[in-house]
Simulated scan of single mutants.
Amino acid sequence: MTVLAPTPTAPGDARPRRWGRRRVVGVAVLVTALVIVAVLSVTFGARDVAPADIWAGLGGSTDTASAAAVGKRVPRTILAMLVGAALAVAGAVLQGATRNPLADPQILGINGGASLAIVTGIAFFGLSTASAYIWVGLLGAGAAAVLVYAIGSLGRGGPTPLRLALAGAVTAVAFSSLVSAILLPRINVMNVFRFWQIGGVGGATPETILQVLPFLLVGFVVCFASASALNTLALGDELAAGLGARVRTARLLSSAGAVILCGAATAVAGPIGFIGLVVPHMIRLVVGVDHRWLLPVSALGGAVLLTLADVLGRIVARPEEIEVGIITALIGAPFFIALVRRQKMRAL
């Protein structure tokens, strides 16, 4: 009987184990960070809250001002986590679907489409409820995505990553101009819209969360179910098709999930930028490019970052607040520039 000697372990064989350890450690760190920022979000604001008041407020007590503050901050914290997770997952999906590292709901004009639809509804149809914002925002985001894809598909070569990015940038500028054209002659609409346009979660209520939650859940399910297809798309359209993947169907379905998340998140919190751009790149450094890990861990990272940004906005200018959309821009822009310069990311 011939006994085969074991094959020596190649240096590259340790890579899966190394990624496995990094993923476990990364998820543990993010879960811990999420718990910490949740506690900070409930504790700090225009009025700091003592631990006893936190427990009283969580129990439904409104006997003290601090306990009442907790009752308002808990929905705000939950909404910040949901919106941050939605935007981060949407950004990761769009980057994978378009194979463009600069893809983002804001850059591709999806947030702009939701904004234009909502301001049109406020100005001409008297929209004023969260549920109406959500439905109109979804329609606007979907229409913007279709328009950007159609423009990026013109000419020979089809919708390349560069064409989609350019089409999205041009469309976003056009939407912003149309929003300004609608608002300028309507001061009453501008007063309603300007706080929403900055982006924030300060108006969160349990009713708002319950209204937007079904849409977010549908978006998350569609995006997570597209993880394997996005891994195949990363190989290139020709190779993916050769492996039996339905490239166009996979791209459309995954993008539809991202559009649902963007539209719903934008409707309840305004057009918050940079979460969908920065977080996926941060998470790739921890879990790699496998979308089966990237998408759920990006959800954790987005929830942590947006909640932390909301806490900072309440602390730095007390007793006033800085809206979370401003904080994410201040944090995200320089961080993303440094990340791109360090990693030299040109394609996915």
Rank of each mutant, 00 (worst) to 15 (best):
V289K: 05
L294R: 00
A245F: 10
S298Q: 11
I182W: 01
V35G: 14
R248S: 14
V222K: 10
A117N: 01
T307Y: 01
E321A: 12
P159E: 04
W293E: 02
L308G: 09
A265G: 00
I272Y: 00
L58C: 06
I187V: 15
A103P: 01
T2E: 15
V286Y: 05
A33K: 10
V49F: 05
T249M: 13
T307R: 07
M190H: 04
V192K: 15
S180I: 14
P8S: 14
R76A: 04
A267I: 06
G12A: 15
T249H: 14
V268E: 03
F215T: 05
S298R: 07
A46K: 13
G157Y: 12
W196N: 05
G202S: 15
L154Q: 14
L294C: 07
I327G: 00
D53W: 02
T77R: 00
K72G: 15
R156G: 12
V218Y: 04
L243Q: 01
T307K: 08
L277E: 05
A258N: 13
R156L: 13
I272S: 03
L285Y: 07
I36D: 08
G332E: 03
G96C: 02
V49I: 07
G244L: 11
I275R: 02
R23L: 15
R318D: 07
G26V: 04
A225P: 03
L139H: 05
S153C: 08
Q343T: 10
G121D: 02
S66P: 02
P159H: 07
L87A: 01
I187Q: 15
I209A: 09
A114I: 07
V222I: 15
A33R: 12
R73K: 10
N188V: 08
L34N: 00
G202A: 13
A265V: 05
R318C: 13
A258Y: 03
L116N: 03
V39S: 08
F274S: 11
R156F: 14
L305N: 01
G288Y: 04
A241P: 04
A50D: 15
A227D: 11
A225H: 07
T120I: 08
P319Y: 01
G142D: 04
T266N: 00
V136M: 12
L243R: 11
R47G: 04
L348M: 09
G158V: 11
G152C: 14
G203H: 10
I187L: 15
A245D: 15
R99I: 05
R346S: 10
G45P: 09
R73D: 12
R156V: 12
A33E: 08
G325K: 06
A150N: 11
A14M: 14
A329T: 11
A165M: 14
L294P: 06
S153T: 14
F224A: 08
E321K: 10
P159S: 13
V83R: 01
G202V: 09
I322Q: 03
V29M: 10
T64A: 13
